[in-house]
């Protein structure tokens, strides 16, 4: 039975609002964006300036998260570190999703030889453990912001290609695609007007969850020394720096670690929430009534 409601979007929002975990995730993500944008205004100290007199200070009023082995303010470094993590996350997902979506569309819509080539390429990429592949690429290209992005993108695009292909394949089966074809519409028109708008939703969910994966991968590369180079603050690298002082000054590891954890948790909660709210089966079940 069909029911009237103004739009799917409204029911999506209503569904999302009921999910407290997802709302919490969304709030933290917004907070993170705010922190990233206003890191200079929010930071009490210069994140790079060493102050050797204040080395390894425990958290106090002056240094809320304490200082590191060079006397740098960890609170400020964590705030600034969010810039690297978030921008790596967004840029990588942006590039990887674009590549993946385009290849997924070609693969799913054209089928045949292009599909075989693209999917075997995806299989080949997936056969490597992704972090090792990224490490190898970072190792060859050398460390640094751009190379981190490249290394992770090379691994990441595959998931978007696969999701997009699957989504295209199922949307393609709809009669309205065949109907458009019999109207004499071109392939390009059919893809852009009828297929992609109906197939893109899962990509948004995968991308949100993907940001978390990328941030973690970037932090791992940073931890292993293949990330952004010092003195730019980066959470993974901060963790590694703190490793030596784990017993004496645990705050060196605790705060960047927490930052990574909370960020990833937030994106995962948000992604899960989006997926649940968009899940066609849930909506179908409501419509049946």
């Amino acid at each position: 039975m069909k029911q009237r409601s103004d739009s799917r979007f409204i029911s999506f929002v209503a569904q999302f609002k009921q999910n407290r975990a997802a709302l919490a995730g969304a709030t933290i993500v917004l907070l993170l964006v705010f922190v990233t944008l206003f890191a200079p205004q929010l930071s009490p100290h210069d994140p790079i300036k060493a102050c050797l007199d204040e080395r390894l200070t425990a958290p106090c009023m002056e240094y809320p998260f304490g200082t590191d082995q060079l006397g740098r303010c960890i609170f400020s470094r964590v705030l600034y570190g969010s810039r690297v993590s978030l921008s790596v996350g967004l840029i990588v997902v942006g590039i990887a999703a674009t590549i993946g979506v385009v290849l997924g569309i070609i693969s799913g819509y054209c089928g045949g030889v292009p599909d075989e080539i693209i999917m075997r390429l995806v299989d080949a990429m997936l056969a490597f453990p992704s972090l090792f592949l990224a490490l190898a690429i970072a190792g060859i290209l050398g460390a640094g912001f751009i190379n981190v992005i490249l290394a992770i993108t090379v691994v990441e695009w595959t998931r978007y290609a696969r999701v997009m292909r699957g989504s295209i394949l199922s949307v393609k089966e709809n009669y309205y695609v065949e109907a458009a074809k019999s109207l004499g519409a071109s392939d390009f028109y059919i893809v852009t007007r009828h297929i992609v708008p109906n197939a893109i939703t899962p990509i948004i969910v995968v991308a949100t969850l993907g940001i978390a994966t990328v941030i973690l991968a970037a932090a791992s590369l940073g931890f292993l020394g293949f990330g952004v180079q010092p003195p730019t603050p980066e959470w993974g690298m901060m963790l590694n720096d703190g490793r030596l002082f784990m017993r004496r000054a645990p705050w060196l590891m605790i705060f960047p670690g927490l930052a990574i954890m909370i960020t990833i948790l937030a994106f995962n909660l948000l992604g899960d929430g989006l997926r649940d709210a968009w899940d066609p089966r849930l909506r179908e079940r409501r419509r049946e009534r």
Binding site: Q3, R4, R286, R289
Partner: peptide
């Protein structure tokens, strides 16, 4: 009867 978002289905 059961409640749904759009009203009570009788």
């Amino acid at each position: 009867h059961f409640p749904t978002q759009d009203g009570i289905v009788k």
